Amino acid sequence: MNHEFFEYEKDKPYIFIPVHSSTGSKVNERLFSHWHEELEIAYCKKGNARHYINGEIIDEKPGHVIVTNSEFMHSIMPGIKDDSAIEIVTYVLIIRPSFLKACFPSYDEIYFSNKETIASAAISEIFENLFELENAENSKLSFLHAESLILELLYQLSRKGVVRRNEVDNINVQKDIERMKGVISFIKDHFREKIPQSLVAEKFYFSISYFSRYFKKMMGVSYSEFLLNYRLYKAESELVTTSKSIMDIAVNNGFADDRRFIISFKKKFGCTPLQYRKHDRSINGNF
């Protein structure tokens, strides 16, 4: 998935997604770079999260909110402290563009800014209430309650700073970002093939040295690490949803052989693919 599209429940102007991850746990697709038309608001409930938004690095602590504007390329990673993994629990709120445009007639001309730390008891309470509503029985009244909470959240965010789009747009930076979106789409379409960094850099008209630096700045990881993590994510999905052999899964997801796949998988998940499959099926039942 590259440019992300969402399906909404009828008349519901938002999607609420709890994201639970750590540096040593199951790979979560929302942690990979993606972009979409919707406004995305992430509230950190637990742990330290690091956001990469159009190449900008923003560290988020519990109680803080990070806003990702429409079409911004972004990803979330667990923070690191003392070389150990930190578990993160983040509530992600996706807001429908039509709802936003009804609230802000000039929505297409503005950005929400992350320059100031956004954290308050009022915002924390809004997200906790939204979480409770998501886990309660749906009704028209609960939808109305949720919409009122989102309106209050937008009001709180607007007080922290809204800037005009033409004040922050940089044409050259935007061109590089659009090229990087093409790179991510290419990787996700061709991850099963041999796609060395030099090939991708040349295809998108980057010098190899600039591409290497720019990719890590934008994604937070090197090209090779991003490609490996994406292959592991896709392989993990096949591991728990199919009965394919370890060899078939390895080859189908870009690994040269099952030995290299097993080594990489164990380093990421702390167990072999076969052990992971057995553990998953002992919890969720046989495929």
Score class of each variant (00 low, 15 high):
M1H: 12
M1V: 12
M1E: 13
F6S: 01
K12R: 15
F16E: 04
S22C: 12
G24E: 02
G24K: 02
K26T: 13
L31K: 10
F32K: 02
E37D: 14
L39Q: 06
K46S: 15
G47E: 07
G47S: 10
Y52V: 01
N54G: 04
D59Y: 13
H64P: 01
T68C: 10
F72T: 05
F72D: 14
M73E: 11
H74E: 02
D83K: 15
A85G: 13
I88P: 00
V89N: 15
R96S: 10
P97C: 09
P97F: 10
S98K: 06
K101Y: 11
A102T: 11
D108H: 08
I118E: 04
A121C: 08
A121T: 14
A121Y: 14
A122W: 00
A122G: 04
F131R: 08
E132G: 00
L133H: 12
N135D: 05
L141W: 14
S142Q: 13
F143C: 01
L144K: 12
H145K: 12
S148P: 02
I150T: 05
E152Y: 07
L153S: 05
L154W: 09
S158N: 05
K160P: 01
R165C: 01
N170W: 01
K175D: 09
K175I: 09
E178R: 11
M180C: 07
I187E: 06
D189W: 09
F191D: 03
E193S: 12
F206P: 00
K216C: 09
K217S: 13
M218P: 00
M218V: 08
V221N: 07
Y223A: 05
Y223T: 03
S224K: 12
Y230S: 03
V240K: 09
S243G: 11
K244E: 12
K244I: 00
S245A: 11
S245T: 15
M247D: 13
A250S: 10
G254M: 05
R260I: 15
I262P: 01
F265G: 02
K266F: 01
C271K: 11
P273G: 12
Q275V: 09
K278L: 15
